[in-house]
Structure formats: C-alpha cells, structure tokens
C-alpha cells in the first residue's frame, strides 16, 4: 500500500478545506455611534489581527465575554496589536442604550450597530455571542459560537499563533 500517496491525499484534502474556511467580511453597512455609516468590508487594523464580536445589551454571556476580554484588553493590545470590534445587534428597542451602556462598562472597543441584523445574517450567525477572528489580510480565520469563562484565553492563544505566522486549523 502506497502510504506516500495516502499522505499526499490527506494533505491535499486538508489544504482544500483550509481554502474553504477562508473568507472576507461581506460588504454590508454598519452604523457607528455618531450615526455614520461604514462599510463592514473596510474594517481593518493595519495588518494586525482583529476580533469581531456580535453582542447585545440584553445578552448576558455576551457582556460576560466582553468584560472578560476588557480585563486583559490593554495587555492584549500592547502585546499583539489586536483590535476588538463589538457589533451590537440591539434593535431600536435598545440601540439607544448602547452608548451609555458601553461608557458605563468602561469598554474601550470600537462599537457598531447592526440594527436589523444584516451583517449578522450575511455572516450566517445563528445565536449570539458569536466571535470571529480576522487575520491581518482581512481573512476570517476562525469563529466561535457561545461563550464560556476561559474562552478568551483560547482566543488569545490563537491571536498569538496568527502573529507567529502559523496556520489556524480549527
């Protein structure tokens, strides 16, 4: 049995899957907290990794996650240059609360509103919290649904991996 051939096959198979996993942020408009519209596909972080986190003011695990990251955010930024973009899917019931909410939480994130869940839908997000990791070239390299305490440590391991130029294969 030709094991070399089998290995080649497996390698090719994994390569083709990693190619499928690559994707860009779609061209959908978000609103910033000053009411300006921005194109989501133009979000960037000067070639450094970027976290995109879908959340809402009423979503407890989302707030838990963003608070847990916020505790370490200064260190994360300094060490890895990462930036977190928090996309709120609060509808008009709560969208006016977003700015006072993040101010009082003391979050230092870039925050946008996705009031009718257009970007959420375009990225096929079922439930929040949902987190995407985007590499320096704007490719989505990883995503995760839900939040458990400790998930942020795993996320940071992946960011460090990206900065070392390693592939993320999960």
């Amino acid at each position: 049995m030709n094991t070399k051939l089998l290995k080649t096959l497996l390698l090719l198979l994994s390569l083709s899957f990693s190619a499928i996993a690559q994707d860009k942020i779609p061209n959908i408009q978000l609103k910033d907290l000053s009411g300006n519209m921005i194109d989501a596909n133009l979000l960037e972080n000067n070639g450094k990794p970027m976290i995109i986190s879908f959340w809402a003011t009423w979503c407890k695990p989302c707030v838990l996650e963003l608070n847990a990251i916020n505790d370490q955010y200064v260190d994360w930024q300094e060490e890895s240059g990462v930036k977190l973009i928090a996309v709120s899917v609060d509808d008009s019931r709560n969208s006016a609360r977003v700015k006072p909410f993040i101010t009082s939480q003391g979050w230092d994130y870039e925050v946008y509103l996705d009031e009718n869940q257009e970007l959420k839908r375009a990225l096929n997000v079922n439930n929040i919290p949902h987190t995407f990791l985007v590499d320096g070239s704007g490719e989505i390299v990883w995503q995760h649904n839900g939040y458990m305490t400790g998930d942020e440590d795993h996320l940071y391991e992946l960011i460090e991996k990206l900065n070392r130029g390693e592939e993320i294969s999960e």
Partner: peptide, 10 residues
C-alpha cells in the same frame, strides 16, 4: 442619552 466617563444616562 448622555454618556461620559463612568456615567451613562438615558
């Protein structure tokens, strides 16, 4: 709404 520093009012 008003938001500044540690304070948020709506």
């Amino acid at each position: 709404s008003y938001s500044k520093g540690n304070l948020g009012i709506i």
